[in-house]
């Protein structure tokens, strides 16, 4: 994928998301539309994003590295840094609009849709990971439980690597 196209894909995925992994559905859709196997890029990028410090959304930088090397990841860094600056006009608009039921309903509807899309995307990730056998399913379930009980993601990834080496 050309770097300019990669920049646009990451910018669009970031622009139409709310929160760290909210960009996942749009990223998968855009990668598939560009002939890139989404799961082959997304799963390792998610793992890297989870064990790196800072926001989870930086998995987009890891995904871009896998597709476009250092230049791709630096462009992705720029692409993920742009949308959050919309917080400045939103801060002004919110003060004027938050009392409007329609505005609050739109925000609520959008929040529900973003989580619903994540669930749909997760299904694709689950089926891809589960294709590697029962061990993968067990590790996946343990990964879910670990994060739910606030075990640091780095420990989860190290444990998964240990399972992969020993088993």
């Amino acid at each position: 994928m050309p770097l300019s196209h990669l920049f646009l894909v990451i910018l669009i995925a970031s622009m139409f998301s709310f929160g760290g992994l909210g960009s996942l559905p749009v990223l998968q859709s855009e990668l598939a539309a560009n002939g890139v196997s989404p799961d082959a890029v997304v799963l390792p990028a998610l793992a890297v994003g989870n064990i790196s410090p800072g926001p989870n959304g930086l998995y987009l930088v890891a995904a871009s590295y896998l597709m476009g090397g250092i230049k791709g990841s630096l462009l992705a860094c720029l692409a993920v840094a742009i949308p959050p600056f919309l917080v400045l006009p939103i801060e002004r608009a919110k003060r004027r609009l938050i009392h409007l039921p329609r505005f609050r309903a739109m925000l609520r509807s959008l929040a529900l849709a973003v989580v619903a899309l994540l669930v749909v995307t997760d299904w694709s990730l689950i089926t891809h990971a589960a294709a590697n056998g029962p061990r993968s399913i067990i590790v996946m379930v343990l990964g879910t439980l670990a994060l739910l009980v606030r075990v640091p993601p780095l420990l989860g990834v190290l444990a998964a690597i240990a399972v992969g080496i020993k088993w």
């Binding site: 989870n50 997760d122 990730l125 891809h128 990971a129 996946m140 379930v141 998964a160 690597i161």
Partner: peptide, 10 residues
Amino acid sequence: MIAAVAAGFA
């Protein structure tokens, strides 16, 4: 296994 645990995190 890293891919599996990442899917679990998601």
